[in-house]
Amino acid sequence: MTSGATTLKQPLTLPAHHSTSGIFWKTRTFENIWDTWKDITFKDVYKWASTRKSHCVKGYLMSTTTPTAADFAEAFPPYPVDWKALANPPSDAIQAVWVGHSTVLTQMQGLTWITDPVFSERASPVQWAGPKRVTPPAFTLEAPALPRLDFVLISHNHYDHLDRASVKSLHARFGEALSWYVPLGLATWFRAEGISNVRELDWWEEARHPSPDGSSVRLVLTPAQHATMRGLWGPNAGRRQTLWGGWAVLGSQRRFWFAGDTGYCTVFREIGERLGPFDLAAIPTAAYLPRDFMRAQHVNPAEAVRIHRDVRSRRSMAIHLATFPLTDEPMDEPVGELRRQAAAAGLGDEEFVSLRHGASIVTSGGVDLVAPVTLSC
């Protein structure tokens, strides 16, 4: 596969989600292929941004539109990371720690990896403006007890999922021994940052990553309904010039799935049929209001429950919540709404949970070894 926004000199037969754009020359772009997708224009974004109330921009809670740092800490109390457990992960189970937002530290089959590492104060190209954290990450990348990471999974290039400072810190700590798996087009960005141990995949493509015991896990980039853009300059920064998706990590005994960022569409049933069932899934549950604007790109808790069932996940943990104020719903609303929607769908009490920052979930064939510590709001 060719990295970056490839200039096409002659017509090619492209996969359905590949496209071309440009007037004087054609560049590769990507498309959503489901009728549930609605393209968002700059006019739509401007209209939404201009009508947002200040408390939406800063983040608010159901109990108050002007929360303090203490209010957020009470709503989203952190949980101490169990470093001893991370140093001695179970050999026959999946162990995952929710760091915050879409960042999950996961261990399986002797491997340790992290999804969409974002540790900066703001999800933004600059640290003096943009969505600011209301809750700190469960740990810092300088934590002495942080286990050696084997690889990183990136879902797409939005700033709340791909953070330059965090990428640079991980590379500084682990060097070229750390592998990066990214969707098509993103390798150019990483190489511009001095990182060469990067592999990009298309939807349904897979790579194998070796395990310490001589075995390996399969890494599959799974489709999602979303989009990409990263400012107005830089490698492949334009609209949909890089791909997006989730990741399945398939081991010899256990299966993990990270949804990335997505709206609801029919592809999740296909993911479940082709790659499931999963022992543990990380599924977004927040950033869904206003609904007419967010529906195509972000699921709400009811749709997250549908995804949980579609992909045939035995246990799921909520992500993409309680960290950055991105949209218009109260920041603690998704927790209670997920609980209500899960109960209405007949899920067990601990089948789909919202963890506290720093809490872990350990699952083996659908049976908990350690009960997760859940948010109660």
Rank of each mutant, 00 (worst) to 15 (best):
G130A: 00
D92A: 13
T103Y: 05
L111M: 11
G130H: 00
R133G: 00
T103S: 15
V126N: 12
A93N: 00
S91D: 14
Q95Y: 14
V81T: 10
W83I: 00
P89V: 03
W83F: 06
A93F: 10
P136F: 01
T106V: 15
D82E: 08
T135P: 01
W113M: 09
V134R: 07
A87T: 03
A123W: 00
V104M: 13
D92Q: 14
I114W: 04
A85C: 03
Q107G: 10
V97P: 07
A129K: 15
I94L: 12
V126M: 14
S91R: 14
H101M: 06
N88F: 11
V97N: 08
A129T: 13
G110P: 04
R133Y: 08
M108A: 12
S120F: 02
K84P: 05
A138Y: 10
G100Q: 08
G100D: 08
W113V: 05
D116L: 10
Y79Q: 14
T115H: 13
A87V: 05
G110A: 06
S124A: 08
S120K: 00
N88T: 13
A85R: 15
W128F: 15
T103C: 14
A138N: 05
V134Q: 07
A93K: 00
H101G: 07
V97S: 06
F119D: 00
V104G: 06
V104R: 05
R133P: 01
T135W: 02
K132C: 03
A123V: 01
S124C: 09
P117C: 03
A85D: 04
V126R: 15
T106P: 10
D82V: 01
V97W: 13
V134P: 02
S120P: 04
A138M: 06
T106K: 12
P80Q: 02
P80E: 06
E121S: 12
T106W: 12
D116R: 06
L86D: 02
N88R: 13
D92P: 02
W83M: 08
T106L: 12
Q127I: 02
